[in-house]
Computed example of a mutant assay.
Amino acid sequence: MDLFAGILPFVHVAQERSFRRAAERLGVSTAAVSKAVQKLEADLGVRLLERTSRQVALTPEGESFLERAREAVAQVRAAREVAAQAQSAPKGPLTVTLPYILSPLVLPRLVRLQARHPALTLHV
């Protein structure tokens, strides 16, 4: 069983109170969202949503699950952001050649740059 299977579709349906709008936000078909939520409910063995032809409402179990699912989604997004930032941080050697007269202006800035990006190695 995939730990996160169906979580994102469920969160979007619960927030939008609509399978169609959730599908639009996710860029998939309404049927795909419906199947994902049904599979999640089957895996959990509990009904999360009450569906009628006019509306979608959360069950008490769905309310509880939604609260924790939102936290999980937020944590995964934060983890992805941290990983992306680590990838985009400057690292490696940086060689700077400049005239002696400019060194009093440039060197303090280079020191601050290296302090902000410790993976950067300066060669002046």
Rank of each mutant, 00 (worst) to 15 (best):
R109P: 03
G62H: 04
A84D: 08
P99S: 14
L49I: 14
Q55Y: 00
G92N: 01
T30F: 05
R68T: 12
V56I: 15
R116I: 00
L120C: 01
S53K: 08
P108M: 05
A78S: 09
E24L: 13
V106Q: 01
Y100A: 04
L107N: 06
F65Y: 15
V37C: 07
S88I: 11
F65L: 08
A5G: 12
E24N: 08
E61P: 02
D2Q: 10
R20P: 13
S18L: 01
D2A: 06
L120F: 03
A72F: 14
Q38K: 12
A119N: 06
A84Q: 12
V111Q: 05
P60T: 02
S34W: 01
L107P: 00
P93K: 01
T30L: 07
H117A: 05
A78L: 12
R70T: 09
A72W: 13
R68E: 10
F19Y: 15
A5C: 08
V124T: 11
R25P: 07
L102N: 01
H123V: 13
L40P: 12
R17M: 10
R20Y: 10
S53N: 06
L8I: 14
R20M: 12
L122C: 08
P90D: 00
Q38W: 04
V82W: 07
A5K: 11
A23C: 13
V76T: 05
R70Q: 09
A31K: 14
G62N: 03
A5D: 11
E71D: 05
E67K: 13
R116A: 10
E16G: 03
A72E: 08
Q15N: 11
V96F: 00
L94D: 01
S29L: 07
L102P: 00
Q87Y: 00
L102T: 06
R54L: 14
E71Q: 10
A31V: 14
E24A: 06
E71K: 12
L98S: 05
A23R: 04
E16H: 13
R54I: 08
S64L: 15
A84S: 10
G27F: 02
E67T: 12
G27R: 04
A57D: 04
Q38P: 14
E50K: 15
V46A: 14
A5L: 11
K91A: 14
E63S: 09
R112W: 11
R20W: 06
T121W: 00
L94S: 01
P9F: 02
V96I: 08
R116D: 09
R47T: 15
E81L: 13
A69W: 01
P99E: 11
D2H: 12
S29Y: 03
V33T: 05
Q38S: 15
P60S: 02
V111I: 10
L58Q: 02
L48V: 03
S88P: 00
Q38N: 15
P104S: 05
